[in-house]
């Protein structure tokens, strides 16, 4: 190990320490800000307790509504991933191996076509969507399903390639199982980790999405945060902290899922 490839412990901790401290400052500042008592200095718990106290439901109705919207959007987006993307990926993996490259390409495209570009073309598409499905906020999930495509694809694909999907499904079929049974009782259980990871990362992406909602004039957590931030920046800071923490926990869980897979 004395080959000079790895940094010494001192070098490692100096780098990680300096970068870590610099990166911690804005988060610490955000936490400190959420306890500030107005602009005068001094600290208070009021902003935090106010969220759970009486009348909070009325005062922050807009914000709670927006959280509800984002949760609904996350659920519908995950449903799109599970119902539209997942079966297609399994089908391509088993039946159309030649289409794998095409599918991968399609799923990576949203990285090159950023949300700010997509939204220009989504505006006319949504004027049609509204006529068919109404103007419910959940319709935004159609666009989010595209936004999460690269992330969800990678999560599922990693799992798909690690297990003998074709062999297992053929074995089940030869034992007389129909396709629904194969999908439900054989494939879903062995793809559980990849599917869960895809779902979690989709939730994180949807909760953080701002661009499309904002420019299509829909209300979700992020657009509401920006609006609330102008009148009550403390509450906006608290919600930002909570959302960041929630996303962090989701991603830790994804990391844990991947680790278990490697160990088993």
């Amino acid at each position: 190990m004395k080959l000079g490839t790895e940094p010494s412990a001192v070098t490692r901790w100096i780098i990680l320490g300096v970068v870590g401290i610099i990166f911690a400052i804005p988060i610490v500042a955000l936490i400190q800000f959420s306890f500030r008592d107005g602009l005068g200095g001094g600290y208070t718990l009021d902003h935090w307790t106010g969220l759970f106290g009486e009348g909070a439901a009325r005062t922050y109705r807009g914000l709670f509504q927006a959280v509800g919207n984002s949760v609904l959007l996350a659920v519908v987006t995950v449903a799109i991933v599970l119902v539209v993307l997942l079966p297609t990926m399994i089908l391509v993996h088993i039946q159309f191996p030649k289409l794998k490259r095409v599918l991968e390409f399609i799923c990576i495209v949203p990285i090159t076509v950023p949300a700010i570009v997509l939204v220009v073309g989504l505006a006319p598409v949504y004027s049609v969507v509204v006529k068919i499905f109404g103007s419910g906020v959940w319709t935004l999930a159609f666009a989010y399903g595209i936004t999460v495509l690269p992330y969800a694809y990678r999560a599922i694909q990693a799992n798909l390639e690690a297990v003998p999907v074709v062999t297992l499904s053929e074995a089940a079929r030869s034992l007389g199982a129909n396709w629904a049974t194969v999908l439900w009782r054989v494939l879903l259980p062995i793809l559980r980790r990849g599917v869960l990871a895809a779902a979690f990362i989709s939730v994180a992406v949807v909760l953080g999405e701002f661009t499309i909602a904002s420019l299509l004039n829909r209300v979700n957590l992020q657009t509401a945060l920006l609006q609330v931030g102008q009148s009550d920046p403390w509450v906006a800071a608290i919600f930002a902290l909570l959302a960041l923490t929630f996303a962090f926990v989701l991603l830790l869980l994804i990391g844990r899922l991947a680790r278990n897979r490697n160990n088993s």
């Binding site: 955000l30 953080g208 992020q222 920046p233 962090f248 991603l251």
Partner: peptide, 26 residues
């Protein structure tokens, strides 16, 4: 590594508006 990976993903991909808040607070 797990913690750094997860934090990195959060800040790299989902921060947006919230990071702007953090910097206004800083």
């Amino acid at each position: 590594r797990t913690v750094i990976d997860s934090l990195s993903s959060v800040f790299a991909q989902f921060g947006g508006v919230m990071l702007a808040f953090a910097f206004i607070a800083t």
